[in-house]
Every structure is written in C-alpha cells, then in structure tokens.
Design a binder for these strands. Structure first.
Lengths: 242, 242
DNA sequence: ATATCGGTTTGATATATGTCAAAATCCGTG
DNA sequence: CACGGATTTTGACATATATCAAACCGATAT
C-alpha cells in the first residue's frame, strides 16, 4: 500500500481510519487527538463511478478521502456539467453543503476509493472545545475558497495551453506533497473530464497534450504523463495572451 | 439613506455600526447580541478605487460591508486580472486570507463605501461560546464556496449571452433581497470590470447588452439597467449551447 | 488471438469571441 | 456651457477553440 510521507498542506486527521499517520495532524495534544479519533466511526468504500453524495442530498458530514480520488461536479439545467475539482488522498470534501444543509454538487469516485465520514455537528462541537481544531477547520474552508479563486482566474483569463499547464503543475505539486513523483504520474481522469474541468472540449485537451509533447515539455501516452521540463511548463503558464 | 428591509441570506450582524438593523441577525439572544456588538469597534470609509486590502496583506479581520460596494480581484503574473466578485451591503469579505494568514486577492471600493472590521480571532473566540454564531460563520464561508462553484460553471461552460444573463439575474436577486427594485438599477461597475468578471472582453459585454436590448429583454443606457422580461432572461440563461 | 467498446488522436471546417480602430457618448471640471 | 478625458458603442477583421467526422488505440471479454 502506498503511504504518503508528508503533506504540504495538512488536512484534518482521521485517526479512526489510521489517517492520523497519513495526514500530518493538526497541532493537538494526546487527549485532543483521542477525541478526534472518536469522531469518525465509519469508513466507506467506492469504485469508479460511485457517488459519495449527490446534489440535493441532505448534509450530514464532511468526508476525508482516505484512499483513491474523487471528482466534484455541478450540473446545469440542460444537463451539461462543470467539474469543479479533482480531490485526492487527505483532502476534505462536502463543505459546499453547510450553507443550505444540502449538497450543491455531486462527488463521484474516479477509482477504487475509501472515505472517512466526519459528522459535521460533532466536528463543530469538538472545534468549540479545541481552538486549534477550530482554526484548522476554518483554514480548510478558506483554502477551498482560495483554490476556487485560482480556477476562476484559469477559466476567466487563460488560454487552453495555460489552462492545461496549470492543471499539470497543480497535479505535480499535489503528488509531490504526498511523497510521489512530481514528474511521472498516471492521470485518473479522462480527456472529457479534464475538459469539463478546464472549460475546454476534449479534443482541445488532447491536441494541447500533443503540442506539449511536440515541444518537449512532456511525454504523454494516453494517461501516463511525464513532465520533462517543469520550468518551461511553468513559463507556459505565465505567458498570457494579453 | 437607503435602508434595506430584509436579506434573503442574512450575514453576520454588525451591531456597533447599527448593521443589526440592516442585516437580519443570526438567531441570538440579547446577551449574545451584546457580545457581538462589542466585537466590531471601527468603521472605515472608502471612495472609488480605494483598497480595503491587497493581495499579500497580513490577515487580521473579516469585513462587513456597511454601505457601498466592492470588487475582489486576483492578479496573474503578467498583470492581467480576474474579478472574482462584486460585493454589496451586508456581505462579508476577507475569508480567502484565513488559510495562509495573508490576503490572496485585492478588495477595491467601487463607490463611496463603509465597512465594519470584524477581528477574526475575536470572532473565533465568540463563536466558540455561541454555537449559533459558529454555525452562521460556517454557513457564510460555505456560501462563498457555493457562489464560486456557480462562477466556475459560468466561466467554464456558458456562452457570452448566458454569462451576462446570469450576471444580471444575480444582481436582480441581490437588489431584491435588499428591498430595492429587482428590475431597475444602476450598475456600479464598468464594462471592463464586468468583462474581467465574466471572462469576456469589454466589447463583447457591450455588444451583448445591445443584443439584449434589441431583443427586448432589457433596456440599457450605459449604466442604467431595466430588465423588461425576467422570464426570457432566465430562459436565455438556461439555454446552453451544448 | 479476435472482436468489441469506450476512449483518444487527428483532420477539416465553422463559429463565437477577441482584437484593432474609430466614432459616439458621458461626466467631471474649468 | 464648453472642453477633454474616460467610457461605451459599433464596425471590420483575425483567431482560438468548438464542432463534426474518421481513424486509431487499448483494455476487456469471447
């Protein structure tokens, strides 16, 4: 079993699932850790295509991804979707639902995955007792807001090449933060899903991958990616059209 | 002085600025209200173009907009910007900064405006004491995440007409929630700013306004908007290309 | 090993929106 | 009230990306 070493941006510990070993825990003492342990009882398993929750579902819990990965998506009237994120091990999802007590997006497994359920009312009660946990929870929500800002920038003012460069560099960083290779990895999502995330058609995604390969920035064989020149990929991201 | 009547989505009360009268307060008893009153001491004034905070500024406080309006924007390397939102009376901004203790965007006044400062550590302390306030704070942050999802959908998969329709309908709702006319209002932002928000060039924004007018959906004279047919505008929003 | 099916790549063409430029309009200031 | 700079509108044209279509590839099942 793969075992991430260190997270650049640690999330909530999830001790009952032994996630405490995986996610660098918040700065808590032993007693506090124990209480956090008691928070999450159940671990659920999913295979590709399974829904963790659906838009409209009643809100009960946040979820810590223990293994595997998910995508979140919002649907428009006419059925077409926007992928709002790809989440991987150690990340927390479900925060959209707090505001209205209903989930406002779907969360779908992209591979065999496990999540720890974190009942939100218990989490709130505990974070009233433990200020460090409270602040941590706020940081996690704030981080989601910052992430969203970045995606708005991407969707609102970058061209296709910049978007894909940003996507690859983001994956690279997140793999690195989990002790995996920042330059060689397998994509868990299809060209269509990448397109729905980046606001592009799948053909444009495919073509842009090919351009990057022709330019020697990456080597790509379907879902196997190797980044050959991180610096130039970064330069591509920074080189806006305007 | 204009006096909003009721907010569909109440935000934090800001009693020291008499915002308690404006924003429907959280469900707090008198003692709790008093404590919340003591939270915010200072009210600051701004004129168009003034910065409430800048990207990189140290995080101290959230801000409740007491009068006027602001825009928030993120900047890319090459200097071009994405407007991430237009905020009006009763809304809370600054939550981006919690995650890293630094603001990750600029907040700029769009007209003469006043804000109440809400020192975040005090807000956290108080929300440990008052569960209703705690939940309210979480809802406000979650609502921001949901709002961002909507913008991603807009930027990632809508055409220019849908984007502008969504923009106008959103303004309409928010004015209505403040007891103002949902169909007749003044824009506070330039075509350029609307464009930076919607991921369009200002010329495209202008042309799309003209199309809407030609089609009898709205009447527009520069910054004066009248929505003539809310239903068809809504239909325009729902009529995706895909 | 072969067939099948979904996913991917590539090509040809269409189109929405961007870009550049000029005219029109608005608004604050002298 | 007129001036001047900023903003907005409109037009002509360019281009990035979407669309449509076909070939290709890789995994899974027969």
């Amino acid at each position: 079993m793969q075992r991430p070493v260190l997270y650049a941006r640690p999330n909530l510990a999830c001790s009952s699932c032994n996630l405490a070993e995986l996610c660098l825990p918040v700065d808590l003492n032993a007693a506090e850790m124990r209480k956090l342990d008691e928070l999450s009882h159940s671990k659920r398993s999913f295979t590709r295509g399974d829904y963790l929750y659906r838009c409209g579902d009643k809100f009960q819990s946040l979820y810590a991804i223990h293994s595997g990965s998910f995508k979140t998506q919002v649907l428009h009237e006419d059925g077409h979707e926007q992928v709002t994120g790809f989440q991987m091990v150690g990340e927390i999802i479900g925060m959209d639902a707090i505001s209205s007590d209903k989930h406002t997006c779907d969360a779908v497994a992209m591979e065999n995955s496990e999540v720890c359920e974190l009942p939100f009312s218990k989490l709130e009660a505990l974070s009233r007792e433990i200020p460090n946990l409270q602040r941590h929870l706020h940081k996690i929500m704030s981080r989601e807001i910052v992430r969203d800002q970045g995606i708005m920038l991407l969707l609102g003012s970058m061209r296709a090449e910049q978007r894909l460069a940003a996507f690859l560099l983001n994956l690279s960083q997140r793999f690195a933060a989990r002790g995996l290779s920042p330059t060689k990895f397998q994509l868990r999502m299809s060209r269509h899903e990448i397109g729905r995330y980046l606001g592009l058609q799948l053909e444009t995604v495919s073509r842009t991958f090919s351009h990057f390969q022709d330019d020697g920035l990456i080597s790509v064989r379907v879902r196997s990616i190797e980044i050959l020149d991180l610096q130039r990929l970064q330069a591509c991201l920074n080189n806006s059209r305007y």
